[in-house]
Simulated scan of single mutants.
Amino acid sequence: MNKVPMTVVGEQRLRDELKQLKGVERPRVITAIAEAREHGDLKENAEYHAAREQQGFIEGRIQEIESKLSMAQVIDVARMPQTGKVIFGVTVGLLNLDNDEEVRYQIVGEDEADIKVSKISVTSPIARALIGKEEGDVVVVRTPGGEVEYEVSEVQYL
């Protein structure tokens, strides 16, 4: 079984969601199903069918989260030796050498990636190009719009 890298924050988010699903959502849907059953004929009971469908979604999500957590290799970058190299979990400051625009990204697991909050997947082209680099290194990233050159301006182990 392959281990999937995940940050401490990503693991905690999944555990919180799992706790919410098992402790709040699942019991709520079970109660809704029981109430809908009391109304009689199940064939034409829309409330019953909606609650059963929601139960299926909840149970599926619980299984998905448990699977992800069982395959997770949680990496706490704050406890790792700070060598100045870009590794999984670090936050990287980059300077676009074409337009002098600065960007910052945290390299995270696939499930945690969200470009809106500057978190990129470790499997993304830019992250793969950055892994192993140090401050001052120049990397070339192939994008759909062509190649872009970045200088690694900062590596933070947060």
Score class of each variant (00 low, 15 high):
Tyr105Glu: 01
Lys119Trp: 05
His49Asn: 11
Val92Trp: 06
Asp41Thr: 00
Gly40Tyr: 00
Val140Lys: 02
Met71Asn: 09
Val117Thr: 15
Leu42Phe: 09
Val103Asp: 12
Asn99Met: 09
Thr83Ala: 08
Glu47Pro: 00
Asn45Leu: 05
Glu102Gln: 15
Pro144Arg: 12
Gly40Met: 05
Asp41Cys: 00
Thr83His: 08
Asp76Asn: 14
Gly84Ala: 05
Met80Val: 07
Leu130Ile: 07
Ser121Gln: 09
Phe88Trp: 06
Ala127Lys: 08
Ile115Ala: 12
Ala113Leu: 08
Phe57Asp: 12
Glu112Trp: 06
Gly89Met: 03
Ile87Gly: 03
Gln73Tyr: 10
Lys68Arg: 13
Ile115Cys: 03
Pro81Thr: 12
Gln63Pro: 07
Lys43Cys: 01
Ile107Cys: 02
Thr123Asp: 14
Asp100Gln: 15
Ser67His: 12
Ala50Phe: 09
Ala51Phe: 04
Val108Ile: 05
Ala46Ser: 05
Lys133Leu: 06
Gly132Met: 05
Val141His: 08
Asp114Trp: 09
Glu47Leu: 13
Ser124Thr: 05
Val139Ser: 04
Ala50Met: 10
Met71Tyr: 08
Glu110Ala: 13
Thr91Tyr: 04
Val90Gln: 00
Gly93Ser: 11
Lys116Ala: 15
Gly145Lys: 13
Met71Leu: 15
Glu101Leu: 12
Glu135Trp: 02
Ile115Thr: 11
Val139Gln: 01
Val74Met: 10
Arg52Asn: 10
Thr123Asn: 15
Glu64Tyr: 13
Lys43Met: 07
Ile115Phe: 10
Lys43Leu: 15
Gly93Thr: 02
Ala51Asn: 03
Gly136His: 07
Asp114Ala: 14
Glu135Cys: 03
Ala78Gly: 02
Arg142Cys: 02
Arg142Met: 08
Gln106Pro: 02
Phe57Val: 11
Thr143Leu: 13
Leu97Lys: 09
Asp41Met: 07
Ile75Thr: 06
Val77Gln: 03
Gln63Asn: 11
Ala127Phe: 00
Glu110Ser: 13
Glu44Pro: 02
Glu64Asp: 14
Ser67Cys: 02
Ile75His: 04
Ala113Asp: 11
Pro125Ile: 12
Asn45Trp: 08
Arg61Tyr: 04
Leu94Ala: 06
Gly89Lys: 07
Val108Asp: 03
Tyr48Leu: 15
Glu64Thr: 13
Ile58Tyr: 10
Val117Cys: 05
Leu97Tyr: 05
Ala50Tyr: 00
Gly93Ala: 04
Val117Gln: 15
Leu130His: 07
Glu134Val: 11
Ile75Phe: 00
Gly56Phe: 01
Gly109Thr: 03
Pro81Phe: 10
Gln82Tyr: 09
Glu59Pro: 04
Phe57Glu: 12
Glu53Ala: 14
Leu42Asn: 02
Glu59Arg: 04
His39Phe: 14
Arg128Met: 14
